[in-house]
């Protein structure tokens, strides 16, 4: 699958410094927030295929209904502002949604589940490249109340459903970073949007590295079966957006996956040098968390040799 291979020139290279430490690294979001790559239709088709094959890639608590509608309207409105052939017309609580690119035309009434063919989050989640998570704000904490996540990176939405922000990040080193991040998110005013980048390396170009699918990708990764590092090993950049939803104050968390083969990283000497430097200086606990114990040095060596 060629999911979001990032062949366009606008690859969001995730490393801003020659060393990497886990941090909140947020910056104000700039349009477009929702990515439309050259392989847009393929990515959306894959998203639907995974969801239809495994319905637990979608979760929603009963109390997430309002926030899910809030997220739906925000996402559709955002698409209408950013993309061609897409429009959202509103008359009171009544909306008419047109996505000419996908041939979707839908009238719905805000809050009335019977007016949509499926849950608001999957209705929206099938039409964007990004995974969609709704974090409800209650009692000065954020809670994973709902989501459609088909491209998780070594986590499982079905398992994490219902967790607090702190519980979600339990396995990540540097928990204090996430205490501050949660406080920051809870202070975000409605409508605000922020962006952060996360990264990793993987042995293939699969966007779906969920634990749910790990029997499909895990064995090869553990054996580190690589024949051609430059074309098989990929830099995985996650473009994450955090949006404070206007009506409910829930936080909408969008995760877009962009994969770039190491050969393409090597083609940009500044990126290559930076990735080598980051891999060479990665703290042990981060290397272990990102599972880069062997893959990291392998990638760094290949990049170094490709410039000899």
């Amino acid at each position: 699958m060629s999911g979001a291979t990032g062949k366009d020139s606008s690859y969001p290279f995730p490393l801003a410094h020659d060393t990497y430490r886990i941090s909140a690294n947020v910056e104000p979001a700039a349009a477009p927030i929702l990515h439309v790559g050259a392989d847009h239709a393929d990515v959306l088709a894959l998203r639907s295929r995974i969801l239809d094959g495994e319905p637990r890639r979608f979760v929603a608590a009963p109390h997430a209904a309002a926030a899910s509608w809030d997220a739906l309207v925000w996402l559709l409105d955002r698409m209408a502002r950013e993309q061609a052939g897409v429009s959202l017309e509103r008359d009171g609580h009544r909306y008419r949604w047109t996505n000419a690119r996908l041939g979707v035309e839908q009238e719905f009434v805000f809050g009335d589940a019977s007016t949509l063919p499926e849950h608001p989050l999957t209705f929206a989640g099938r039409q964007v490249e990004e995974d969609v998570v709704v974090l409800g704000a209650r009692g000065d904490r954020l809670w994973l109340d709902a989501g459609m996540v088909v491209f998780a990176s070594v986590w499982s939405l079905a398992f994490d459903h219902g967790m607090s922000f702190a519980e979600l990040h339990g396995p990540v080193p540097s928990p204090e970073v996430f205490v501050r991040a949660e406080r920051f998110l809870l202070r975000m005013p409605p409508g605000d949007a922020w962006r952060r980048l996360n990264w990793g390396l993987q042995l293939d170009d699969r966007p779906d590295l969920s634990l749910d699918a790990s029997p499909a990708w895990g064995p090869r990764r553990r054996r580190l079966e690589v024949h051609d590092v430059g074309s098989e090993v990929h830099l995985r950049t996650e473009v994450q957006h955090l949006v404070r939803l206007p009506m409910t104050g829930a936080v909408l968390f969008l995760i877009g996956v962009r994969l770039l083969p190491l050969a393409a990283v090597a083609a940009v000497p500044a990126w290559s040098a930076r990735l080598v430097s980051v891999l060479d200086t990665l703290p042990a606990e981060v290397r272990s968390y990102k599972d880069l114990g062997v893959l990291g040095p392998m990638a760094a060596d290949w990049l170094r040799r490709s410039h000899e």
Binding site: H63, R138, G139
Partner: peptide
């Protein structure tokens, strides 16, 4: 005018 902000929202649970 800016959109309203509030730390006094209904608890959906």
């Amino acid at each position: 005018a800016r959109s309203p902000r509030s730390s006094f929202t209904p608890v959906e649970t």
